[in-house]
């Protein structure tokens, strides 16, 4: 179920240090989320597509992701053109679709896809292990990064355990349907997952203490940022500035 399909690769962006990529992605998302002008959104989408090209991502997986994300956006396309009154664009039966509603939905589609594409190209190209280490170096609260790394570490273990429970249930004839028995079975599966997880947590805690855990994770890779990382940081910084200029440039210059 859970796979980090974008984190494996050999592109420029895969090799860029997450300490550069994560702040760049955060800055880019923020600027695009706040943008209101078409020109800024178009430049942002173009920049995001360029990043995707640089990251050489598997296109099939990429389209599957975008499809799911745009499902939520489709809700707005279904509702806004009808519910916002304004200049009618075309009539479908008794309903009229307004230009204003279409424009609002269109802006959201551009922004949303721009941000997501950049996020995939910049953040999903690192494994969570490296992201966690980077968060630590970026001075995020230490307990939070521990929590992230531990959750990541045990996610796959717990998932396998759930798959095992489910297989066992299916072998015994469990077929999910809309009834109380199904809900009870799932609830018990989740409950037993919790109980086993609590027992496992105790063992993990003891093992960590035995190995000298005193509230710190030490990163094995303490590599400083290289020249390439700095060049990447400059390029990404320029990209964010470019989008910001399209949005607020006229205001700053006047």
């Amino acid at each position: 179920m859970v796979r980090e399909e974008f984190s494996i690769g050999d592109s420029v962006l895969h090799h860029l240090d997450p300490r550069v990529k994560v702040p760049a992605a955060a800055a880019f998302s923020t600027v695009v989320a706040l943008s209101t002008r078409w020109s800024a959104m178009e430049v942002a989408l173009g920049a995001a597509l360029t990043l995707v090209a640089f990251a050489r991502l598997p296109l099939g997986a990429l389209f599957r992701r975008l499809f799911v994300v745009n499902g939520f956006i489709a809700l707005f396309w279904a509702v806004l053109p009808v519910s916002i009154s304004g200049t009618p664009w075309m009539h479908v039966g008794p309903l009229s679709l307004s230009v204003e509603g279409m424009a609002l939905a269109g802006r959201m589609t551009l922004k949303s896809n721009g941000i997501i594409l950049a996020f995939i190209a910049l953040v999903a190209t690192s494994s969570v292990g490296r992201l966690g280490a980077a968060m630590n170096r970026l001075k995020m609260p230490e307990k939070l990064t521990h929590l992230l790394l531990l959750t990541y570490r045990y996610l796959f273990v717990i998932q396998e355990e759930y798959e095992r429970l489910k297989r066992a249930a299916v072998v015994r004839g469990f077929r999910p349907k809309t009834n109380l028995h199904t809900y009870r079975t799932y609830a018990y599966m989740v409950a037993i997952l919790f109980v086993r997880a609590a027992a496992r947590a105790e063992r993990v805690q003891h093992a960590m203490v035995c190995r000298g855990f005193a509230g710190r994770f030490h990163a094995l890779e303490e590599a400083p940022l290289t020249g390439k990382d700095w060049i990447g940081a400059l390029a990404l910084g320029g990209m964010v500035m470019g989008v910001a200029f399209m949005e607020w440039g006229a205001w700053v210059c006047s």
Binding site: H146, L150, R153, K177, F194, G215
Partner: peptide, 23 residues
Amino acid sequence: SDKIARTGIMSACFFVASLIHVP
């Protein structure tokens, strides 16, 4: 800090539980 392992593993549990689709 002695509760971090527990909370992290629980958080993994909820993550997995949230992937369950019930009919």
